[in-house]
Design a protein around this nucleic acid. Structure first.
Lengths: 241, 241
DNA sequence: ATTTTTCTGCTACCAGGGTTACACAGTTTG
DNA sequence: CAAACTGTGTAACCCTGGTAGCAGAAAAAT
């Protein structure tokens, strides 16, 4: 929905931001003033960039999705810490404390964004306490998702983590369509989001398919037994095989 | 140092907070006004409590340390997400977004804290933008440490994670004393902080001891070869055994 | 002093999940 | 249309690191 919109005019942009958690409550005039300090920026799909390089600017995503993650240079493996969507902002961490953040940014789709120098964004936040009414809860969400990721990685096996990830990314229960499915995330992407590896994700999905819990097709995943998946997400299965 | 102080009077408290990242820059009068809304609270060592129960109040630690973590009820295992020290505040996440946070709090020492209702703390933040000059960077630090934990858990093996943890907790290089050592963290605590288990930590420490990198005694850990440990922390060892 | 609890050292066991490697179906590109 | 690329299915291998269990040393409690 949001992800499909390609805002062109200032009006479109304002309308889009009105529906995002960061800006929904914001006064029109304040929003205008903010927009005047931002400029548009586009990244092509697949562009990968280290935060150091782009870290001097603060971005707000208008369309497309962006992976923010870390890499182990020795193994080449990557974790996704955040999958940012339209309405999300980055890099929040270095905005807050001014330190460079050793993360990798990767455009999963073509990206349209607004951007402004970090300093400008900080100044703006300081001068518009009203914005904090949305900004602070937004920070809370981000921290919470990080905390849950860390907790999951330390405490739960890949099956549980994968089940949870899928449940978190279910499409909004369409009324007519009887099938619930996940939007286009490759096995590779899923793996990076649970801190694992493509082969393992595939193995697990095939296992579930044989159990009749899911059906996989190229680029999509249909959930047949939601309840079973819910159980796996809370690992009752450990003791009752 | 800070951890040893047992502040009694208002003066002591103010002096202590002056040295913490959250309050160091703060105006004296503002600090006074804040303190008037807080009351003292003490927890005994070992007290374990779920965030739900204490989640309605916002706390600032004056002395002692507090573990904030998650538990897997099926296995009983626990991860430490934060090891909070004097000057730290909690629970920041539910302060920000108002949602209950499914974490466990555990007093590692006897705790002396200031506390105030969440609503009060939020109101106070809103009315004192000056405080944000310290608060926002503090949030950044917290998020950063969470992000690093998650990244480490997904990308690095236990040896690397343990090496990094130890390096992060080295005592401030004492001039006379030739030995660098870590303050009193049990193997169990170390394990929880790297998302692993006592046996594994012990195994690793013994391994290092045989290599001559560290010396372990009950309750303390001496680092003999700092450089070796630094290398392990960046896993050069993987390819050059 | 004796009991109880906490911390530590050590062993044997084995399974989850990571590595590597290859084949094939769809898609996109030239 | 062929070629190149991307996403997916599968198999063999085996190593890290978690589980279970016990025993002794130090500390705390009685």
């Amino acid at each position: 929905m949001l992800a499909c919109m390609q805002p062109r005019s200032e009006m479109d942009i304002k309308a889009l931001l009105r529906h995002t958690p960061l800006f929904e409550g914001l006064d029109g005039a304040v929003l205008d003033e903010m927009l005047s300090h931002f400029r548009r920026e586009t990244w092509k799909q697949g562009r990968r960039i280290s935060e150091q390089e782009s870290g001097q600017r603060f971005h707000i995503i208008l369309s497309g999705r962006l992976k923010m993650g870390q890499i182990n240079p020795d193994t080449g493996r990557m974790v996704t810490l955040f999958l940012l969507q339209p309405g999300d902002a980055f890099d929040v961490i270095s905005l807050l404390d001014g330190q460079p953040n050793p993360v990798i940014l990767e455009a999963r789709d073509d990206l349209l964004m607004l951007s402004t120098p970090m300093q400008e964004a900080r100044r703006w936040i300081e001068e518009h306490p009203a914005f904090n009414r949305s900004f602070l809860p937004y920070l809370g969400q981000q921290m919470r998702s990080l905390a849950n990721l860390a907790g999951d990685l330390a405490l739960h096996d890949t099956e549980t983590r994968l089940a949870r990830l899928i449940l978190r990314h279910l499409q909004p229960e369409a009324p007519g369509q009887p099938l619930r499915l996940i939007h286009n995330l490759s096995h590779e992407s899923l793996a990076e989001m649970i801190g694992s590896v493509r082969v393992v994700v595939n193995r697990q999905l095939q296992h579930w398919q044989r159990e009749g819990v899911v059906v996989t097709r190229r680029g999509e995943l249909l959930i047949k037994e939601l309840e079973t998946l819910l159980k796996k997400a809370m690992q009752f299965s450990r003791h009752t095989p």
